[in-house]
């Protein structure tokens, strides 16, 4: 059995006078240590899938299994990183990082030392006692990364974590996150709009379409690219070939959905 399995998962959002089927009958499985990306247009249910895996929301149909256990029953820590850092502005960086241990009730001198170590690894040791307001966007997102890593999550869920950053910061952070994830052997799901980012960072790419959200096609990223850092992947001769293939699938979907107007 795989590490993480989604078994015919659907989700509806209900409101007083209507409902939306955000994702429809999604089945996929991910192996331990794998890095996969979800790529697709806005509103195709990417964030919904992550929220369900994170246990923040319960799907309306289907099953989610993590290590053969229903996700709702398992107490396995999950690292969820959002589009914006959502560091708590009234807490120092260190206390933000120690938020998870506080909730899991594993706060100790050791975790504090570990937090400072991790902050050091991402170059934030000096600002540990400052408040998030005093940091740049890239620094804040690095702090948010440490906040998820400190809990030693079995699986990392990254919901467009770089999209609010400028291009250079984004490239640098991609490398850093990729390095951290490789160092600690994390299984990771990355949600992104950016085709290049998906190719640069992942082993497999799930391409989705909207109305309702479902998986269209799965791309395997060639082994040569997987072992490079994201920055170097973007300069690899094979990169453009993959990019064009993904682009074709995505743009085909777009024209398709224009011919057949979505029904909801």
């Amino acid at each position: 059995m795989s590490f993480l399995t989604l078994d015919h998962v659907s989700h509806h959002y209900f409101s007083k006078d209507s409902y939306t089927k955000a994702i429809d009958d999604i089945s996929l499985s991910i192996e331990e240590g794998e890095f996969v990306s979800l790529l697709g247009p806005s509103g195709c249910g990417k964030s919904t899938i992550l929220s369900i895996i994170a246990g923040i929301m319960k799907q309306t149909a289907g099953k989610v299994l993590l290590q053969d256990q229903l996700i709702t029953d398992s107490k396995i820590p999950i690292g969820y990183m959002l589009q914006q850092d959502y560091l708590f502005p009234w807490k120092t960086i260190l206390n933000n990082v120690l938020l998870g241990p506080k909730i899991y009730d594993t706060n100790s001198e050791e975790t504090k030392t570990r937090a400072l170590e991790l902050l050091d690894e991402v170059g934030l040791h000096d600002v540990a006692n400052q408040h998030p307001g005093a940091l740049s966007g890239g620094m804040r997102q690095r702090a948010a990364l440490v906040r998820t890593l400190i809990n030693d999550p079995k699986i990392m869920l990254l919901d467009e974590p770089f999209s609010a950053l400028d291009y250079q910061t984004k490239l640098r952070l991609e490398d850093l996150v990729s390095l951290q994830i490789k160092t600690y052997h994390k299984t990771t799901i990355l949600v992104t709009h950016d085709i290049g980012e998906a190719i640069a960072m992942s082993d497999r790419i799930f391409i989705m379409h909207a109305n309702p959200g479902s998986i269209d096609k799965v791309f395997e990223v060639p082994i040569e690219l997987r072992n490079e850092t994201p920055f170097l992947v973007r300069r690899h001769p094979k990169y453009q070939i993959i990019f064009d293939k993904v682009w074709d699938v995505l743009s085909k979907k777009e024209t398709d959905s224009k011919v057949v107007p979505p029904t909801s």
Partner: peptide, 14 residues
């Protein structure tokens, strides 16, 4: 209050 703060906490099982 921005629901995303709660999301962060809930992902820790709060």
């Amino acid at each position: 209050v921005d629901p995303n703060y709660e999301k962060v906490l809930k992902s820790f099982g709060a």
